[in-house]
Amino acid sequence: MAKITCPKCGEQIETDGTITVCPKCGVDLREVIGSLDVDYEERMKTIARDESVTTHEFIVRTRGLKKTYVMGEIEVPALRDIDLDVRRGEYLSIMGPSGSGKSTLFNMIGGLDKPTAGRCFIEEVDMAQLDAFELAWLRCRKIGYIFQTFNLIPVMTAIENVTLPMIFAGMGTDEMMERGRELLDLVGLGDRLDHKPYELSGGQQQRVAVARALANSPAIVLADEPTGNLDLHTGKEIIDLLKELNRASGVTVISATHDLKMIDVSDRVVHIRDGEIERIEQRHEIELEVGGMGA
């Protein structure tokens, strides 16, 4: 472990070489770490070899990801050659107009669909090599999903929706109910445990969905247009909630969106157009009042 100082905001950071962005302002610290004689490349190689340490820098990596939909006789390319690295603990937004392929990318990263070509790694594990059991395990334990249309199970109450993934994970009933209550409390719905989805507003339903996504303490929260069906104000609340979770617990948030409010909280914004990465913006590159964000 070594103590370094962020060149931009002056934050003191303790790092073992795996943290490469400043948690406060998002500046790339690799140069600083390198100057501390921590040979970054060597360090990563050791980590990659050591199977007990899985805190790799990149939680998600895609290499040459392609997806082509066949509609009748026409082949429609949705993704062409996506190379994307997502750092652990990052809040990443995938932006682009509708039809640009961001939802397709979301599906690939989440293991909900298979790519036509290319590879997608979650914590250095190639998803193409996982069988049905392992894939289900990954979806259950490692990834939390949030959808535009909330996708709560309509016949279940809020707490039952939240505890469903815990049933799959084999948690005991008492522990499950307690954690379900805690999570709903966390998203501000502690008094709505036994409400059915249709008895809740859109924003409240999305909060239940956020709680459900966190049920099994995932490493990644994947959100597909989480604010798409919400009004401006409720949308902002959900974004703030996601950011707060990201900041407090270090969970990686990857969000496909075309909501500009999302830019404010994102560490990086990946712009996608016609199935290709147009450009990637770091937060400090974005012309916004970033100064107030760290507070």
């Binding site: 090599q129 059991f133 994970a169």
Partner: peptide
């Protein structure tokens, strides 16, 4: 981390199967 699910041998697979239940 994901306990090296990709390179997992027989034992780990059994463990993973048990971890998903209904």
């Amino acid at each position: 981390g994901l306990a090296k699910a990709a390179g997992g041998g027989g034992k780990e697979e059994i463990k993973i199967q048990r971890q998903i239940t209904l």
